[in-house]
Amino acid sequence: MKLDRTGEDLLNQKRPMDIPRPLVFAVNTTPLPIVQKIVDAVFRRALRQHPNLFDRLGSYAEKRFGFSPTGLDLAFEIHPATPSISVYRKRQAPDTDAAVTGPLVMLLALLEGRIDGDAMFFSRSLSVTGDMEAMLALRNALDDCGFDLPKDLAGLAGPFAVPFQELANRVRSRALEGLA
């Protein structure tokens, strides 16, 4: 992992890249079954790319994990044992065994292991609740699995896989700058 950031950049407090408003509007107004279908496809592909993803969880795979990106009216519940992912509007989201709330960009960067979850917690950028042992196990499992979202998901774009990956790489670079 290359982290080409200068000390000066890092000392300047930045905030996570905002999700563009049109995208927020689209996500918040798209019927939930359609969002669920897209998220399912992404989740299945991620599992195919990383079949050992949940190995490190052991018995914690039975737990239900909640992810709530701030700024979006969506909440995700992942049940590794099934394995399954469910999408809810926030007010309808069920209680989970452990949950994390934070900016979407930060949650995605954590998923890829590109930022340190403890550091985000120290800075109060993330909040975690519930079963910390289960959440720690999931964090460590994700950290070791080597997600690369642009590369892993490029196949979903079919014939546009290459431009999709290039665009996604650029978006990710910009987003990570905001987290530095």
Partner: peptide, 9 residues
């Protein structure tokens, strides 16, 4: 106990 991003940096 820290993540790989911490270790790298």
């Amino acid at each position: 106990q820290r993540g790989k991003a911490y270790v790298a940096e």
